[in-house]
Simulated assay, not measured.
Amino acid sequence: MHTKTPATLESKIERLVHEHMVEQQRLVKAAVERAFSVLAPAPSVAMQRQGTRVRRSSGAVANLAKRLLDAVQACPGETMTVIAAHVGEKPRALHRPMMRLKHEGRVRSAGERNATRYFPMGGKAT
């Protein structure tokens, strides 16, 4: 029977342990890189988000308020979602014009949050 010397066995074991450690370090490094790449958005996405808000002029808000008032008169007692569909805008874009109409006394609201309904009033004309 052929037996190996202890020095030969020791060198083979050391080599296997070293290869195993190198492979484990590579796997850990790859896992850490994947984890951090998910957390941080790509620079192109961050750059796209900057400057997306555009401030509307008072004339644009007034024009949108007129269209909004026409929509409220066409379907009184509806929610902002329904009215926004008639105007052709998103409900969030109509918040400022609606506040303007309410302040002028041309529209009144009843309800809270998503259940708010809007009604035309016989207020002063601008």
Results as ranks from 00 to 15, higher is better:
118 Y>T: 00
108 R>Y: 09
52 T>K: 15
111 G>M: 03
115 A>L: 14
126 T>Q: 06
45 V>Q: 04
79 T>Q: 06
84 A>Y: 01
117 R>K: 10
51 G>I: 05
48 Q>H: 09
100 R>Y: 09
43 P>S: 11
92 R>K: 14
55 R>P: 02
62 A>D: 12
22 V>F: 06
32 V>S: 02
105 G>H: 11
97 P>M: 07
84 A>H: 02
91 P>L: 04
121 M>V: 09
52 T>N: 12
58 S>L: 10
28 V>A: 15
54 V>S: 06
9 L>T: 13
94 L>I: 00
106 R>I: 05
16 L>Q: 07
74 A>G: 12
88 G>W: 09
40 A>H: 14
64 L>W: 03
58 S>D: 08
76 P>H: 03
50 Q>P: 00
37 S>K: 12
76 P>V: 02
113 R>T: 12
105 G>K: 09
28 V>H: 13
7 A>S: 13
68 L>S: 03
58 S>Q: 07
125 A>L: 14
121 M>D: 06
37 S>A: 15
69 L>G: 01
107 V>C: 02
72 V>A: 05
71 A>N: 02
11 S>P: 03
121 M>R: 11
76 P>F: 03
24 Q>E: 13
74 A>T: 10
72 V>C: 08
53 R>Q: 08
47 M>H: 09
63 N>S: 13
27 L>K: 11
24 Q>K: 14
47 M>N: 09
62 A>C: 03
18 H>S: 15
28 V>P: 03
25 Q>I: 07
119 F>E: 07
109 S>K: 11
97 P>A: 09
98 M>G: 00
4 K>S: 14
88 G>V: 13
28 V>T: 14
85 A>I: 04
107 V>L: 06
75 C>K: 04
5 T>E: 08
111 G>L: 05
93 A>M: 05
